[in-house]
Simulated assay, not measured.
Amino acid sequence: MHPISNVEFMLLQMIAECRQASGYDIKKLVDQRGYREWANIGTTSIYVGLRKLSDKGWIASEETDLKSGKGPIPTWFVLTEAGMAKLKDEILNSLSSTRERDNRFDLGLAAMPLIGKDAAIAALRKRLDFLREALKDIRQKFQSQGGVRLPLNVRMLFLHPISLIESEQAFVANLINELSEEARQYDDNH
């Protein structure tokens, strides 16, 4: 069984949804849905991913005479039977057991005593600012794409990260309060 990257997983989904798609179609869909917000996918990784999927036998390419505008004649990609089977397997696995987190943030939390409470609080306040901006950007994209009128699966691509960011904001705010309280108690006792 071949391993599958997040980019490849996303590409299989988009090709299946469109029934057939060109690299340009996929790039437009990535931009419209805000995939870049939660996945490391650029134009180059789209085309590298398409090549890998083709090498694994999960997609096939079809040349067409249909041409719109300037540039080369587009290559259309379709899922093979093996590609559809792999996609369904990945969807089931990801919905039932995947749990990805920001391990770098966890490492920073573990090392907080090394920088002191004041520096930790200042850094965590910056994180709250960062989270506030990220949340604003995702909400704006969500609204610009149609908001609550979007199909359920597309809505969830926005609402899940919004929910996670809101939860992290609450966690960080609580942590700042606890660190501030500990710092006050320390000051009162010394």
Rank of each mutant, 00 (worst) to 15 (best):
P3M: 11
N6Q: 03
L11D: 01
L11H: 06
L11F: 07
Q13N: 11
M14W: 09
E17P: 02
R19T: 12
Q20A: 11
A21Q: 03
S22C: 01
K28Q: 14
L29Y: 02
V30G: 06
Q32H: 11
R33C: 12
R33H: 05
G34E: 05
Y35S: 09
N40T: 12
I41M: 13
T43N: 13
V48S: 11
G49L: 08
G49H: 10
L50R: 04
L50W: 09
R51L: 12
K52V: 08
L53V: 05
S54K: 12
I59P: 02
K67H: 08
S68H: 09
G69L: 00
P72D: 08
P72T: 08
P72M: 08
W76V: 09
T80C: 01
A82C: 01
A85D: 07
K88E: 08
D89F: 00
E90K: 02
E90G: 00
I91C: 00
I91H: 00
L95D: 14
S96K: 15
S97H: 15
S97N: 08
T98P: 07
T98M: 15
R99Y: 14
E100T: 06
D102V: 14
F105N: 03
D106V: 15
G108H: 07
A110K: 12
A111C: 00
I115Y: 06
G116N: 04
D118N: 13
I121T: 01
I121F: 05
L124S: 01
L124H: 04
L128Q: 07
E133S: 10
E133P: 01
E133W: 03
A134M: 09
K136A: 11
I138Y: 03
R139G: 04
Q140I: 11
F142T: 03
F142H: 12
Q143A: 13
S144R: 13
Q145H: 10
Q145D: 13
L150Y: 02
L150D: 01
P151R: 02
L152G: 00
V154L: 04
R155F: 03
L159H: 05
H160V: 15
S163L: 15
Q169M: 15
Q169F: 12
A170R: 15
F171C: 11
N177S: 15
L179G: 04
L179W: 05
E182M: 11
A183K: 14
A183F: 09
R184Q: 07
Y186M: 11
N189W: 10
